[in-house]
Amino acid sequence: MSSQGLVQKAAFGISWIGASVIEFFRSFVEETGRIMLFFHESVRLIFAKPSRFPEIIKHMEFIGNQSIWIICLTGGFTGLALSMQIYLGFKMFNAVNMVGPVVALGITRELGPVLTGLIVAARAGGAMAARLGTMRVNEQIDALEVMGVNTKQYLISPRMVAAFICMPLLTAVFDFVAMMGSWFLCVKIVQLDEAIFWQKIRDMIEVKHINEGLIKGAVFGIFFALICTYRGFNTTGGAKGVGEATNQGVVQSMVMIIMLDYFLTNLIRLYYSLMGIS
């Protein structure tokens, strides 16, 4: 092959890559803009009449009450597993009395809100996307609009409010159960001193550490509810589209939660630094 042919192929490959990158970012920006407009309208309609308080309570029961069992189960075994790994590591340095506070910091600030967000996004977020998607392809949403019902106020806003309220509460439940799992392993299984276990935790854990996790939980709740309801509300393509919307909603919610955790951690650290909080 001549050098001219190689140059032409290289130029074609570079132009194809460039066009693909541009198209990706264009689609990403457009989709982000549509989601933000969807979010703005849904938040604005929270305070509109008529009140949808009964719908909020119904969705709080679904997101909150029906998630408690799986949150407790996951939290308990997370506390057990994390404590065992930290105990085995600290045992090599004769620092086993620090297992409790290290686990408490990790649970309250990071693992509690993140794992709670991932679990609830998979369970409740997937259900949101599937239900709204089914309503869309069955033309139930269209029927509500014909009847004069503001579908975003009736279907979207209550779910977002319920997720915002329930996620910090579920995070607190996860934190408590995980610490009970840590206590059980450290005190009852490996026979650490119980008084020292709790005293070390009291010395190191502050209210701000717990609040950090609860704030993250609330933000995660807003975002997974936004993404999943957006995907479900804009479903197309029949039954196949419902499955795709549910899959996209859950996957994007989980990825967003992990990404947000990093940025929120740094924002909170920056806030503490500006406020002079150590």
Rank of each mutant, 00 (worst) to 15 (best):
residue 55 E to Q: 15
residue 56 I to D: 03
residue 85 Q to S: 03
residue 13 G to C: 11
residue 36 M to A: 15
residue 20 S to C: 03
residue 93 F to P: 01
residue 91 K to S: 11
residue 71 I to D: 01
residue 66 Q to D: 15
residue 31 E to F: 02
residue 73 L to P: 00
residue 20 S to P: 08
residue 17 I to Q: 11
residue 83 S to G: 10
residue 42 S to F: 09
residue 36 M to P: 03
residue 79 G to C: 06
residue 62 F to E: 09
residue 94 N to V: 05
residue 73 L to F: 14
residue 12 F to V: 11
residue 48 A to R: 02
residue 14 I to L: 09
residue 17 I to A: 08
residue 86 I to Y: 09
residue 10 A to T: 13
residue 42 S to Q: 01
residue 33 G to L: 08
residue 47 F to Y: 11
residue 27 S to M: 14
residue 77 F to R: 04
residue 21 V to I: 15
residue 65 N to T: 12
residue 65 N to H: 08
residue 78 T to F: 05
residue 47 F to A: 13
residue 28 F to K: 09
residue 84 M to L: 14
residue 56 I to H: 03
residue 78 T to P: 03
residue 60 M to K: 01
residue 58 K to G: 10
residue 50 P to Y: 03
residue 13 G to N: 14
residue 31 E to L: 09
residue 56 I to R: 09
residue 48 A to L: 04
residue 25 F to V: 13
residue 50 P to M: 12
residue 86 I to P: 01
residue 78 T to Y: 00
residue 49 K to F: 08
residue 65 N to F: 13
residue 78 T to A: 11
residue 87 Y to F: 08
residue 55 E to T: 00
residue 87 Y to P: 04
residue 72 C to Q: 10
residue 46 I to K: 07
residue 89 G to F: 13
residue 33 G to T: 05
residue 48 A to P: 07
residue 29 V to E: 13
residue 11 A to E: 05
residue 75 G to Y: 07
residue 97 N to F: 05
residue 56 I to L: 05
residue 85 Q to V: 01
residue 77 F to M: 15
residue 12 F to D: 08
residue 25 F to D: 11
residue 91 K to I: 02
residue 67 S to F: 09
residue 44 R to N: 10
residue 76 G to Y: 11
residue 16 W to L: 02
residue 64 G to Y: 02
residue 94 N to S: 11
residue 16 W to M: 02
residue 18 G to P: 00
residue 64 G to F: 07
residue 71 I to S: 01
residue 51 S to P: 06
residue 85 Q to Y: 00
residue 72 C to E: 12
residue 32 T to G: 08
residue 36 M to H: 11
residue 98 M to F: 13
residue 60 M to N: 04
residue 36 M to R: 13
residue 29 V to Y: 14
residue 83 S to L: 01
residue 28 F to C: 11
